[in-house]
Structures are given as structure tokens and as C-alpha cells.
């Protein structure tokens, strides 16, 4: 038992208050992202997401590993949020340059979203996207998360997303990327490619605990274990349905700690949606205050990995995390 916990128990003992500590049967799986040279990849380090043993910020019960923070880069932004040009300048027109910029701010992971492959938008070819990925892997040594079409609804999008992720898995074999999203509708091809080439999967399901568990079961039947999966149940921004995401994460985390292994993959929370909402575009507010308020709520609901847009947000969330003690998991 860590010394902090012993002190706390001692303190509460002497004050005749019963300390409401629960014991949990389940543990959150640890997903390792990024492979270094010695591990067969080219990353300068790797990062572990997950490993929680208790509810988030219940430091009186035990210490969880610190949440991991990612910064996002998009290969194509249709309408950049207000303040983005001021914050980043022209680099947002060039994803490789943009990656070099965010790299300097020391995120644990970088999330490259290659959204322009959608046949409904720019229709960038998968081959072309692979060239981009190659340059990106050169531009940063950090562990990478590679995401395609985040909301694949149309059949064209679903098949393009699958093709993109499969190619990425094969071209960058051994890098231990986090790739996705895979959904209940389309997961098999990408799951096989990820397994064969040593990557992790981002498993996306909407607001439904059972659907998230179902997808993990399907992936597990394909041979992908929970320590190769990061679950995404993000549905909406602050004021736009964020409460569904928060409650789904809380329920999923409780299920996992109660011992349901299929609920036991770490969870990611995408907060950048908050900066794309036009209602919030009122100067002089910096949109990172919306993003970070949402991030804090997500962390309190159990997010193990938070994907942020603004570099200021990264600083702010880090300053909050530094107020708490963390364990090794």
C-alpha cells in the first residue's frame, strides 16, 4: 500500500470517519503505443495507455497511472475554427509542418487524422495518404495514432476507411500504431491487418455500453485482445450531448472494474469537437477554454487518453493532472 494511502487512512481513523474504500475485481488493460528501434519500429519512445485499478481521481482508494495526452493534426481542415490561424499560422495547410510544430509542445502521442481520403470530400487516394504517413513518421519520433474517417456512415466512406487503415497497417509494420476507427459494421479486415503487423485498434461505438462491449467481443474473437484496443464512445461536444459520452464512459469503467473483461480496454476521449462549434465563436474567448473544460469532465469520467486540438489545452490539462499523485498501474 502506498505511503500516501496509509497516511490518509491513519488520518481518517483518528477522526472516526469510516473511509468508503471499495475493492474492485477488474483492472483496465494496458495498451502500449509506439515501438522503438529495439522493438522493431522507429519511435523514440513508447507510451502506455490504461492500467487503472480504481475510479478516476479516487486517490483515497488507490493511484491510477496518469492519463495520456495527444495533440491532433489534420491533413485537411474544411473550415478552421476561429483562432486556429492565429495559433498555428499557415502550418495548418501542411500536415507535416503542423506535426513538427505540435511535436515541440511535448505531447505524449500525436494523432494524425487523414480525413481527406473521404470520397465525399477531397477523395485523396490511399496511395497518396501513405506518402503523407511516410513523411509524418520522419517528422516526429513520438508514438502515433493514425485515424481515418471518424464518422464512417456512407458505404463509400466505410470501404475507403478500411482500405486506408489496412494499407497503413501493412506499410508501417512493427511501428505499433494506434489505428482506427473500426466499428461493429466494419472491423474484420483492419483487425487482421493490425494483428499481422503489430498495431493497436481504435474501436468506435456510439454512446452504448453494450455496443462497446460487443465490439470488443467481436475483435477478441478475431484474436485482438483488450490490451490492443482503445475504446472510443465520444458522441458530442460540451452542450451538444457530451453528457452521453460522460455517462457511457462512467458505466463502461464501472463495468470493467466490477470484472467484465470485455469492458476493460482503456478509453479515449476526443474533445476537439468543442472547437468546431460555431456557437462558441465569440471573441475574445479562446476556444481552448471550452476544450479543456470538456477534457476535465472526460478525465473525471474515466478517459485514459485525451485527444486535444490546441497546444494551450495541453498545458492547461497537464497543469491539472500535476495536482494529483499517480501510480504505475
Amino acid at each position: 500500500m502506498p505511503q500516501g494511502q496509509v497516511n490518509l487512512i491513519r488520518r481518517l481513523f483518528t477522526l472516526s470517519l469510516p473511509l468508503p474504500i471499495e475493492s474492485y475485481r477488474g483492472v483496465i488493460a494496458k495498451v502500449k503505443i509506439g515501438a522503438t528501434k529495439s522493438e522493431g519500429g522507429s519511435r523514440s519512445y513508447s507510451t502506455t495507455v490504461g492500467g487503472a485499478r480504481t475510479l478516476p481521481f479516487y486517490t483515497f482508494e488507490g493511484l491510477n497511472p496518469p492519463p495520456v495526452l495527444a495533440l491532433e493534426v489534420y491533413d485537411h481542415l474544411v473550415s478552421p475554427p476561429v483562432g486556429v490561424m492565429e495559433a498555428f499560422g499557415d502550418v495548418i495547410m501542411d500536415p507535416v509542418e503542423w506535426i513538427r510544430v505540435v511535436d515541440r509542445f511535448n505531447p505524449d502521442i500525436i494523432n494524425l487524422n487523414v480525413r481527406s481520403i473521404s470520397p465525399l470530400t477531397l477523395n485523396r487516394s490511399v496511395k497518396d495518404a501513405m506518402h503523407l504517413l511516410e513523411e509524418v513518421l520522419q517528422a516526429t519520433g513520438r508514438p502515433l495514432m493514425i485515424t481515418g474517417i471518424m464518422d464512417p456512415i456512407h458505404t463509400e466512406d466505410i470501404s475507403r476507411n478500411t482500405e486506408f487503415l489496412k494499407q497503413a497497417a501493412e506499410c508501417f509494420k512493427g511501428e505499433r500504431l494506434l489505428i482506427g476507427p473500426v466499428t461493429v459494421e466494419a472491423y474484420e479486415t483492419v483487425a487482421e491487418a493490425a494483428l499481422t503487423n503489430g498495431h493497436n485498434l481504435l474501436a468506435k461505438s456510439n454512446m452504448d455500453v453494450n455496443q462497446a462491449i460487443r465490439l470488443n467481443e467481436l475483435l477478441s474473437a478475431k484474436g485482438v485482445s483488450t490490451d490492443r484496443i482503445v475504446v472510443d464512445v465520444t458522441t458530442g461536444a460540451l452542450g451538444y450531448g457530451i453528457e452521453y459520452t460522460l455517462s457511457t464512459m462512467e458505466r463502461l469503467r464501472l463495468r470493467a472494474l466490477q470484472g467484465d473483461r470485455m469492458a476493460g480496454s482503456p478509453m479515449i476521449f476526443f474533445v476537439s469537437e468543442n472547437v468546431f462549434i460555431s456557437e462558441f465563436r465569440e471573441p475574445p474567448l479562446n476556444l481552448s477554454i471550452y476544450e479543456t473544460a470538456a477534457a476535465v469532465a472526460g478525465l473525471m469520467s474515466g478517459a485514459d487518453l485525451v485527444s486535444l486540438f490546441y497546444v494551450e489545452s495541453l498545458h492547461m490539462v497537464r497543469s491539472l493532472l500535476s495536482e494529483f499523485p499517480w501510480g504505475g498501474g
Binding site: F57, T292, A293, V296, A297, M300, M316, S319, L320, E323
Partner: peptide, 16 residues
């Protein structure tokens, strides 16, 4: 007592 931006302190207390 912290260096956390206050809107985050308030958000955290509100959720908790």
C-alpha cells in the same frame, strides 16, 4: 492552492 486555470478547478469541483 494551485496553478491550474480556475475554470478547470471549477469544472472539476462541479463534476465532483
Amino acid at each position: 492552492k494551485s496553478n491550474v486555470p480556475e475554470h478547470l478547478t471549477v469544472s472539476a469541483l462541479l463534476v465532483r
